[in-house]
């Protein structure tokens, strides 16, 4: 991979909150992400359209609330779960439901639980960016995955809806397959 880190915006569970989805995409773009990944539950086509209008390449999967989006799928980069793809030669598995949690890729991204989770098991990084929609708590969550030759750096962002302030937490993991 190139010397410069690969920066990926990681999103999930927009539900009926396009305003929060748009804000997160804007924040991630300002940080220079090169690709957006969304783990599903858009609920509204408008949320999917925000990814498309970002001007960035993106990859998304359907969530359990996205049945109505199947008929418009041909207009977007959205796939059935689990979806396998490669970025800079790194293999990803993307799903909504935390069901296919085998470590058969270097990165596994999922959503659905509305809670940020991040851990490395074996060679695989498992990441759930939490909820964009702030349904379970007054905080809109998303993440940025920074991949270097030797490390995964997971930046977790939590935007407080009352104050508008964004708290950031950084977790670092060594890559083993580089």
């Amino acid at each position: 991979m190139p010397d410069e880190p690969l920066l990926l915006g990681i999103l999930s569970d927009s539900h009926k909150k396009p305003d929060l989805t748009a804000e997160a995409i804007g924040e991630l773009k300002a940080k220079g992400v090169q690709h957006l990944i969304h783990a599903g539950d858009f609920s509204l086509e408008q949320n999917l359209e925000l990814l498309k209008q970002s001007g960035l390449p993106y990859t998304a999967v359907f969530g359990n609330n996205d049945n109505r989006l199947i008929e418009v799928a041909s207009s977007y980069s959205i796939y059935k779960e689990p979806h396998y793809f490669k970025l800079d030669g790194i293999r990803f598995k993307l799903m909504h439901l935390p069901f296919y949690l085998s470590g058969d890729t270097e990165v596994v991204i999922y959503g659905h639980t509305h809670a940020f989770e991040c851990e490395k098991r074996g060679k695989t990084l498992f990441l759930n960016p939490g909820e964009l929609c702030a349904r379970n708590k007054p905080v809109s969550e998303y993440a940025m995955l920074e991949v270097t030759v030797n490390e995964f750096r997971v930046h977790y962002f939590a935007k407080d809806l009352a104050s508008g302030g964004i708290k950031e937490q950084l977790l670092t993991f060594e890559r083993e397959s580089s």
């Binding site: 991979m1 190139p2 410069e4 690969l6 090169q34 690709h35 498309k52 001007g55 960035l56 390449p57 993106y58 207009s75 977007y76 980069s77 959205i78 796939y79 793809f85 490669k86 970025l87 800079d88 030669g89």
Partner: peptide, 28 residues
């Protein structure tokens, strides 16, 4: 590969079409 913002209808590398292709930044 795969990060073109143009909308050429024939091209799988356009980000507008969501083709399932391998995407990467510059090779070394």
């Amino acid at each position: 590969s795969g990060s073109c913002r143009e909308d050429c209808k024939f091209c799988t590398q356009s980000i507008h079409h969501g083709a399932d292709i391998e995407r990467y930044r510059l090779k070394s």
